[in-house]
């Protein structure tokens, strides 16, 4: 049986301290906001496929901070070219975490294209050497501990259960508010 997203999120909550976290829209943002609300989180609301590019931009602008991106597998398929961009920049402070549940969870669990995608293999083929498929909270804990200590970019893909009876927490923050709080946490302005 696959591991739940909440179990993986709990590992993140245990290990993330002062890292910046960029959350893809839907379940990634809403679970993380409910579990660990903090100013250093940025929640995408309506930009599918953009968490990795946005996280990369933050990582390039804030090289002294480590950036963790939380994204879904459907979003990776939508914007897979960005993996080669991440590789080309060599952003050592970027960790990409993918929840691989084979469905578009936030829209009701519709299936992704029915192909057996090897996400870590896709990332490695795009130039990300530190890419791994993982199963289970313990495996994720070990991999994330390592990624938080060593130079990246790292790509961790988590085999994740889709639990349709588990309600996804609601959005409760407006986009402008999210942006202002995040930038304030960095001490930067436009």
């Amino acid at each position: 049986m696959r591991t739940s997203r909440v179990a993986y999120m709990q590992v993140l909550a245990d290990l993330v301290v002062d890292e910046l976290v960029v959350c893809g829209l839907g379940a990634s943002a809403r679970y993380w906001k409910a579990l660990r609300p903090r100013p250093e989180n940025f929640y995408l609301a309506d930009s599918m496929g953009q968490a990795i590019p946005v996280g990369l931009g933050v990582a390039l602008a804030q090289p002294a901070r480590r950036v963790v991106v939380l994204e879904g597998d459907g979003a990776v398929l939508m914007n897979a070219g960005c993996l080669s961009t991440v590789a080309s920049t060599g952003a050592t402070n970027l960790i990409v975490v993918i929840f691989n549940n084979d469905v578009y969870e936030a829209s009701g669990g519709q299936p992704l294209p029915a192909a057996p995608v090897d996400y870590a293999g896709l990332a490695r083929a795009s130039g990300l050497a530190l890419a791994t498929n993982l199963e289970g909270a313990d495996a994720f804990r070990s991999a994330l501990q390592k990624a938080l200590k060593e130079p990246g970019p790292a790509f961790l893909c988590l085999r994740t259960a889709y639990l349709p009876d588990e309600p996804i927490p609601a959005y409760d923050m407006r986009p402008l508010e999210t942006r202002l709080i995040f930038m304030q946490s960095l001490g930067v302005s436009i």
Binding site: L56, G57, N79, L186, V188
Partner: peptide, 26 residues
């Protein structure tokens, strides 16, 4: 400049957005 060649234009829009969030003009 930090030049970032991207694979697709909309992806570059995302990279620029993140850079401004991080305090850099893009």
């Amino acid at each position: 400049f930090r030049s970032v060649p991207v694979a697709r234009e909309e992806e570059g829009i995302g990279v620029c957005f993140g850079a401004v969030l991080g305090g850099k003009g893009a």
